[in-house]
Structures are given as C-alpha cells and as structure tokens.
Amino acid sequence: MDLEKHIEDLVTSKSFDSLTPAKKEMVLSMMTENEYVNQHAFMMKSKKMFQEEGDMLSPDTDLLFSLRAAHTAKKNSKGAAALWASIAGFRIPAYQVGIAAALLFMLFWRWPTTDLRQDRMERQVVYETIIDTIQVIKEIPVEVMVPVERVVREIVYLDRPTMNVDLTLGFETNNGITPSADAPDMATMEQSFGNSSFSNEDLDQFRVGI
C-alpha cells in the first residue's frame, strides 16, 4: 500500500519523463507507462479545474457579519442568563413568603357589597335595529348602436324621356326635315331630298314606284 501511495504522489506531481530511472522502474512495476501518463495528465487537468472553480467561488459577503452579530447576541444573552441565575439563586425563607402573601390577600380582597340579583333584574333588553343594504338588480334597456356593414341594393326609378309632340303644328326631327300636317307632294320629293349631298340620280336606286 505504501508503494501505491508513493506512486500516487508521483502521479500527482511529476510527469513520467521527469522521473529518475529508479522511480520509472518502480512505477513500471505497478502500471504501464501509458497508464502513468494518462493519470498524470488527468490529475494536472483536474487540479487546474479545481483551482479555477475555487477562485470563482467565495462565501456570501454578509455571512461573516451575520455570524459576528450572532456571536455578539449570544454573548449578551449569556450575560442576561447569568443575571437571571443569580436572581433565582437568592433564597428567601418560606415563612416570609407566607406572610407577604397573606398581607397581599388582605390588602386586595373585599366582600361584594352589591346585590347581584338586583343587578340581574335591572337588566334591559335593548333592541337594536340594524339597517343593512340590499342588492336589487334592475334591468335597464340600453340602446346600442352597432355599426353594421352590408351591401344595399338601391333601385332608382327615373322618368322615361318623353318628347313633346305638337300634333297640330308638326315636329322637327334630327335630320332637319320638318314634317308637315299636309300630305307631302310626291313629285317634289322625287326631285329634291332636303339638304342631302347626294344628287338626285344617285338616289334613284333607292326609289320605288308609287
């Protein structure tokens, strides 16, 4: 076991290459070189990790102050306890205590002088009206304007366009021909057709014999 402990100490402190030949031989009697190297590297990394984490951790700053306060409070309570102990240790003879108790009894005790029954009869019953509130639920109709969007079809009726016809005097059309109340003279119509740009001969093709 001592050999194991010695090797453990070597592993935690020295690399395999830095060992003396004698120590190497001792190590190799217990483990291979590879095992030693692995264990040494593991220990080095672990130590580094422990060191880093140890540096990051620290006790709460308030802890020491609270401990000091507790220590002071304990000291003070110790003083009070000693005072109470000294008081409790002070002995008084029993007969003195008895006399003191009898004096106190005589000083404060008195017979009742009033009639208790009379007190009971004079009692009155007092009725007290308690006005409380009740809850009434009233239904109040409320008109609520709710905006609703909808499609409305509007039908608009318009007056049909009419023409003013003067049956007595005739009318004038868009083509400038003013009809006459009298029957047209067909002979004249064959020769001329208003203000048309066509010649009379050109219009022959549309004429029919009447």
Partner: peptide, 25 residues
C-alpha cells in the same frame, strides 16, 4: 487502507474514462 484503495481506484478509473481529453491520446 480504505482511503488509499478508494483514491487509487478513483484515479485509475477516472483517468481511463477521461483519457480522451489527454492531448497525447
């Protein structure tokens, strides 16, 4: 003896388990 045995086994097994973190390996 128990302490030595425990520490020896911890060191041995942990070093094997974490051997991948050894730069040599």
């Amino acid at each position: 003896g128990t302490v030595k045995s425990r520490s020896h086994h911890c060191l041995k097994n942990l070093s094997v388990k974490l051997a991948m973190y050894n730069p040599i390996n």
